[in-house]
Amino acid sequence: MTKRIVVIAEHFNGRLVPVTFELLACALEIQRFRQVPISVVILGDRVEDLAHEIAGASGLEVIAIQDPDLITYNGEIYKNILGEVLPELSPVCICIAHTGQGWDFAPGLAVRLGAACITGVERLFEEDGRICFTRAIFGGKLVADFRVASDPTIITVQPGSFKKASFEARTLGSVILRTVSYQSRQSRSLGIKRAKEESSAVTEADVVVSAGKGIGRKENLEIIERLAALFPKSAVAGSRSVCDSKWLDRNRQVGLTGASVNPRLYIAAGISGASQHIAGMRSSGFIVAINTDPNAAIFNVSDVCVVEDLTAFIPVFIEACEKSNA
């Protein structure tokens, strides 16, 4: 049977999530080293249109599996369906998004399929005839290269790591529609809830000044606010740990589980730069980082690095700015 690379498409609220096209890009890179066809699998209660959208854009074969119980994502149903469907496809590699959905079902699915599993993949390359995957460890201070002993391999791909695939679609692609019914027995999805506040202040700002654990205490947020006030259309944001400490509202959080931002200028103050945070701000126009630790991971994605204590540096910067305006 033909081996394949399989992409599990992700969708939300009736729309394909951008990471789906990044997964296709990742699959195309894998295909350079393993010349086997790519198939896309999409699951949901009504996903025929989305399947056609992918097939049309990519020219690939898309397998749409409809289950009336999949009104929203359910990990148990995903594992049950994929646990049965994937072996039929003889996958060498299964590309899944490193998101609240993909990361939820991928490790369990790997156990079920006897597959290797590598989460949070940011890059891949070939060495000694084997595909190797690079992912961040230690909050992004280091990266580790992983390789696998045998097929299949499940990877979850960090959003923003691969550039959206572009296809010269010579073919129209095809959609195979299947309908199944796997009722979940151990879990029951009760729907998606929207948090009270929206994060639009953060996502729509031209300049985002973001505070990390390095601010030390809540009172120091005042410095961050003063810095943000220097810029028109600016917003104060924060890392996960700052929001966990309730120093900032949850709707101010930037990162994988918070808002994704791409302002003209992003200033990361006291942010170590865990990959989850970077996933939410890496596409910003210009990035300035202020951190006492010269090895902080945030500096790897920054245009300008300031190795300083933010509580000392920012007031000096504000003063310099006010002086030059006077």
């Binding site: 290797a116 060495e127 201070k141 280091l142 990266v143 580790a144 992983f146 390789r147 790897n300 994605v301």
Partner: peptide, 16 residues
């Protein structure tokens, strides 16, 4: 089923 080959310092994606 998978193993770490090596660890290294991350590449810079910007001028830094």
């Amino acid at each position: 089923r998978e193993e770490v080959m090596r660890v290294s310092y991350p590449q810079k994606s910007r001028s830094g």
